[in-house]
Design a protein around this nucleic acid. Structure first.
Length: 184
DNA sequence: TCTGCCCCCGGTT
DNA sequence: AACCGGGGGCAGA
Protein backbone atom coordinates (compact mmCIF):
# COMPACT_ATOMS: atom_id res chain seq x y z
CA UNK A 1 0.00 0.00 0.00
CA UNK A 2 1.10 3.54 -0.67
CA UNK A 3 0.09 6.79 0.90
CA UNK A 4 -0.74 8.32 -2.45
CA UNK A 5 -2.15 6.88 -5.63
CA UNK A 6 0.99 7.33 -7.64
CA UNK A 7 4.40 5.75 -7.74
CA UNK A 8 6.01 8.75 -6.05
CA UNK A 9 4.11 8.01 -2.85
CA UNK A 10 5.78 6.41 0.12
CA UNK A 11 4.99 2.90 1.24
CA UNK A 12 2.72 2.99 4.28
CA UNK A 13 1.48 -0.60 4.33
CA UNK A 14 3.00 -3.89 3.26
CA UNK A 15 1.30 -7.08 4.24
CA UNK A 16 1.82 -10.79 3.71
CA UNK A 17 -0.97 -13.26 3.23
CA UNK A 18 -2.14 -16.29 1.31
CA UNK A 19 -5.25 -14.70 -0.13
CA UNK A 20 -5.61 -11.50 -2.03
CA UNK A 21 -8.96 -10.59 -0.46
CA UNK A 22 -7.60 -11.08 3.05
CA UNK A 23 -4.86 -8.54 2.46
CA UNK A 24 -7.23 -6.17 0.70
CA UNK A 25 -9.60 -6.26 3.65
CA UNK A 26 -6.72 -5.67 5.99
CA UNK A 27 -5.68 -2.64 3.98
CA UNK A 28 -9.22 -1.28 3.91
CA UNK A 29 -9.51 -1.71 7.65
CA UNK A 30 -6.24 0.14 8.18
CA UNK A 31 -7.39 3.07 6.06
CA UNK A 32 -11.16 3.15 6.47
CA UNK A 33 -11.58 6.69 5.15
CA UNK A 34 -9.28 6.35 2.15
CA UNK A 35 -10.23 5.28 -1.32
CA UNK A 36 -8.04 2.45 -2.54
CA UNK A 37 -6.74 2.26 -6.07
CA UNK A 38 -5.61 -1.16 -7.16
CA UNK A 39 -2.77 -1.26 -9.66
CA UNK A 40 0.08 -3.66 -10.10
CA UNK A 41 1.45 -1.89 -13.13
CA UNK A 42 1.83 1.43 -11.36
CA UNK A 43 3.96 -0.07 -8.61
CA UNK A 44 5.83 -2.63 -10.67
CA UNK A 45 9.25 -1.46 -9.51
CA UNK A 46 8.37 -1.58 -5.83
CA UNK A 47 6.78 -5.00 -6.20
CA UNK A 48 9.82 -6.30 -8.02
CA UNK A 49 12.06 -4.97 -5.27
CA UNK A 50 9.99 -6.72 -2.62
CA UNK A 51 9.92 -10.02 -4.48
CA UNK A 52 13.64 -9.84 -5.06
CA UNK A 53 14.21 -9.25 -1.37
CA UNK A 54 12.09 -12.23 -0.39
CA UNK A 55 13.88 -14.51 -2.83
CA UNK A 56 17.42 -13.40 -2.08
CA UNK A 57 17.65 -11.07 0.94
CA UNK A 58 21.32 -10.21 0.68
CA UNK A 59 20.81 -6.49 1.15
CA UNK A 60 18.33 -4.53 3.27
CA UNK A 61 15.05 -3.74 1.59
CA UNK A 62 15.17 -0.01 1.00
CA UNK A 63 11.86 1.63 0.17
CA UNK A 64 10.63 5.13 0.86
CA UNK A 65 8.46 4.63 3.90
CA UNK A 66 5.63 6.57 5.44
CA UNK A 67 5.79 5.84 9.16
CA UNK A 68 2.47 6.34 10.88
CA UNK A 69 2.83 5.90 14.61
CA UNK A 70 3.80 7.40 17.91
CA UNK A 71 7.27 8.81 18.53
CA UNK A 72 8.18 5.68 20.45
CA UNK A 73 6.94 3.38 17.70
CA UNK A 74 8.86 5.28 15.05
CA UNK A 75 12.02 5.00 17.14
CA UNK A 76 11.59 1.24 17.37
CA UNK A 77 10.85 0.89 13.66
CA UNK A 78 13.80 3.07 12.71
CA UNK A 79 16.09 1.03 14.92
CA UNK A 80 14.81 -2.13 13.25
CA UNK A 81 15.48 -0.63 9.84
CA UNK A 82 19.15 -0.24 10.81
CA UNK A 83 19.57 -4.00 11.12
CA UNK A 84 21.05 -6.07 8.33
CA UNK A 85 19.71 -9.26 6.79
CA UNK A 86 20.84 -12.22 8.83
CA UNK A 87 21.15 -10.16 11.98
CA UNK A 88 18.89 -11.14 14.84
CA UNK A 89 18.27 -8.45 17.43
CA UNK A 90 16.59 -8.82 20.78
CA UNK A 91 13.71 -6.67 21.99
CA UNK A 92 15.95 -5.76 24.88
CA UNK A 93 18.75 -4.57 22.62
CA UNK A 94 16.27 -2.52 20.62
CA UNK A 95 15.09 -0.92 23.86
CA UNK A 96 18.69 -0.06 24.72
CA UNK A 97 19.34 1.42 21.29
CA UNK A 98 16.39 3.78 21.45
CA UNK A 99 17.46 4.96 24.86
CA UNK A 100 14.84 3.41 27.12
CA UNK A 101 16.44 0.19 28.30
CA UNK A 102 13.52 -0.85 30.48
CA UNK A 103 10.97 -0.90 27.72
CA UNK A 104 11.54 -4.32 26.17
CA UNK A 105 7.92 -5.21 26.43
CA UNK A 106 6.75 -1.95 24.91
CA UNK A 107 9.24 -2.56 22.10
CA UNK A 108 7.60 -5.90 21.44
CA UNK A 109 4.21 -4.24 21.34
CA UNK A 110 5.55 -1.61 18.94
CA UNK A 111 6.88 -4.34 16.66
CA UNK A 112 3.43 -5.85 16.63
CA UNK A 113 1.91 -2.52 15.61
CA UNK A 114 4.12 -2.26 12.56
CA UNK A 115 2.13 -2.44 9.36
CA UNK A 116 5.02 -2.47 6.91
CA UNK A 117 6.37 -5.98 6.60
CA UNK A 118 9.91 -6.68 5.39
CA UNK A 119 10.95 -3.05 4.89
CA UNK A 120 10.61 -2.65 8.65
CA UNK A 121 12.28 -5.95 9.47
CA UNK A 122 10.49 -6.83 12.68
CA UNK A 123 11.00 -10.47 11.73
CA UNK A 124 14.58 -10.03 13.01
CA UNK A 125 13.40 -9.24 16.53
CA UNK A 126 13.79 -12.14 18.95
CA UNK A 127 13.61 -12.65 22.69
CA UNK A 128 16.62 -12.13 24.86
CA UNK A 129 16.76 -15.88 25.49
CA UNK A 130 17.10 -16.43 21.73
CA UNK A 131 13.62 -17.80 21.20
CA UNK A 132 11.60 -16.60 18.24
CA UNK A 133 8.21 -15.40 19.40
CA UNK A 134 5.32 -13.69 17.68
CA UNK A 135 4.96 -12.35 14.19
CA UNK A 136 2.02 -10.35 12.94
CA UNK A 137 1.93 -12.22 9.64
CA UNK A 138 2.42 -15.71 11.07
CA UNK A 139 5.28 -17.43 12.83
CA UNK A 140 5.98 -19.67 9.85
CA UNK A 141 6.72 -16.60 7.74
CA UNK A 142 9.01 -15.12 10.37
CA UNK A 143 10.97 -18.36 10.57
CA UNK A 144 11.14 -18.65 6.80
CA UNK A 145 12.40 -15.08 6.44
CA UNK A 146 15.10 -15.73 9.03
CA UNK A 147 16.09 -18.92 7.23
CA UNK A 148 16.29 -17.16 3.89
CA UNK A 149 18.37 -14.32 5.27
CA UNK A 150 20.76 -16.70 6.93
CA UNK A 151 21.05 -18.76 3.76
CA UNK A 152 21.49 -15.68 1.55
CA UNK A 153 24.37 -14.54 3.70
CA UNK A 154 25.98 -17.87 2.99
CA UNK A 155 26.63 -20.08 5.96
CA UNK A 156 26.38 -17.53 8.72
CA UNK A 157 26.42 -19.49 11.92
CA UNK A 158 23.99 -19.26 14.75
CA UNK A 159 26.53 -17.84 17.14
CA UNK A 160 27.46 -15.14 14.62
CA UNK A 161 23.84 -14.16 14.42
CA UNK A 162 23.66 -13.73 18.14
CA UNK A 163 26.96 -11.95 18.41
CA UNK A 164 25.57 -9.48 15.93
CA UNK A 165 22.56 -9.07 18.16
CA UNK A 166 24.76 -8.10 21.07
CA UNK A 167 27.51 -6.33 19.18
CA UNK A 168 26.55 -2.86 20.38
CA UNK A 169 25.59 -3.69 23.91
CA UNK A 170 28.01 -3.49 26.81
CA UNK A 171 30.09 -6.60 27.26
CA UNK A 172 27.84 -9.12 28.79
CA UNK A 173 29.64 -12.43 29.06
CA UNK A 174 26.85 -14.46 30.58
CA UNK A 175 24.43 -13.36 27.88
CA UNK A 176 26.85 -14.23 25.14
CA UNK A 177 27.21 -17.77 26.33
CA UNK A 178 23.48 -18.02 26.82
CA UNK A 179 22.81 -16.96 23.24
CA UNK A 180 24.28 -19.90 21.42
CA UNK A 181 20.77 -21.16 20.98
CA UNK A 182 19.91 -22.31 17.53
CA UNK A 183 17.63 -20.20 15.36
CA UNK A 184 15.35 -22.35 13.20
C1' DT B 1 18.20 -28.43 30.84
C1' DC B 2 13.69 -27.17 29.96
C1' DT B 3 9.12 -26.21 31.36
C1' DG B 4 5.56 -23.25 33.50
C1' DC B 5 4.42 -19.67 36.78
C1' DC B 6 4.87 -15.26 39.00
C1' DC B 7 5.77 -10.57 39.23
C1' DC B 8 7.64 -6.85 37.37
C1' DC B 9 8.36 -3.43 33.49
C1' DG B 10 7.00 0.68 29.78
C1' DG B 11 3.90 2.37 26.07
C1' DT B 12 -0.72 2.39 24.02
C1' DT B 13 -5.74 2.52 23.83
C1' DA C 1 -7.79 -0.08 33.77
C1' DA C 2 -6.49 -3.55 30.52
C1' DC C 3 -3.70 -5.15 27.02
C1' DC C 4 1.06 -6.77 24.96
C1' DG C 5 5.47 -10.19 19.76
C1' DG C 6 9.30 -8.96 27.16
C1' DG C 7 12.58 -10.16 31.07
C1' DG C 8 14.33 -12.44 34.98
C1' DG C 9 13.95 -15.47 38.86
C1' DC C 10 12.68 -19.85 40.57
C1' DA C 11 10.44 -23.93 41.59
C1' DG C 12 9.45 -28.58 39.71
C1' DA C 13 9.88 -31.82 36.52
Amino acid sequence: GFDRADSKGKVCFLSLGDQRTTVQNELSAAYPDQSLVESEAMFRDELATVVEFIEEPTKPLHLALELNGTVFQKQVWTALAQTQPGEAITYRELAIRIGSPGSSRAVGAACGQNRIALAIPCHRAVRSDGKVSGFRWGMHRKLELLRRERRALGGTTTSQLHFAAFANSPAHPSSLTKTTRKLP
